[in-house]
């Protein structure tokens, strides 16, 4: 049942988190979730205020979003800041983008759903102009 908790619109949020915590831009306030793997975007890109979000969400540890895994285990104290999500979350052939979207959505909306805070519906993150 846990799997059901994730909404595509949560994509937004995870995009915020991941992108926002990318090491290279850690100090900047990232405004748009970006990943080089997204070539043609189906939906409008997701705006994400990195620092404001983390402050509001009370996230201090970069590794909470920029998680680092080894052998299927989350590595406490380690993080993946500086990597693009697609470096890991771009899996099976033909499903690359879907995998990546899935990762973003689970990350963002999954968390929002669990915490009952933040946007979860598609249109809440993928805002049309």
């Amino acid at each position: 049942m846990k799997k059901f908790k994730i909404l595509p619109y949560a994509a937004l949020f995870s995009v915020f988190l991941l992108a926002g915590t990318m090491a290279a831009f850690a100090q900047e306030n990232i405004e748009i979730v970006h990943d080089a793997a997204f070539e043609n975007q189906t939906r409008p890109p997701v705006a994400f205020a990195h620092d404001a979000h983390n402050e509001k969400a009370g996230i201090d540890d970069c590794g909470e979003c920029h998680h680092a895994y080894a052998d299927g285990e989350k590595q406490m104290g380690d993080d993946s800041v500086g990597m693009e999500c697609s470096q890991c979350h771009y899996g099976k052939p033909g499903q690359g983008v879907a995998d990546l979207i899935r990762a973003y959505h689970l990350q963002c909306a999954g968390c929002h759903g669990e915490r009952k805070a933040g946007p979860v519906l598609c249109g809440e993150c993928h805002r049309r102009r």
Partner: peptide
Amino acid sequence: SHAILFKES
């Protein structure tokens, strides 16, 4: 959106 939901779930 639906396809992605299936993917996520």
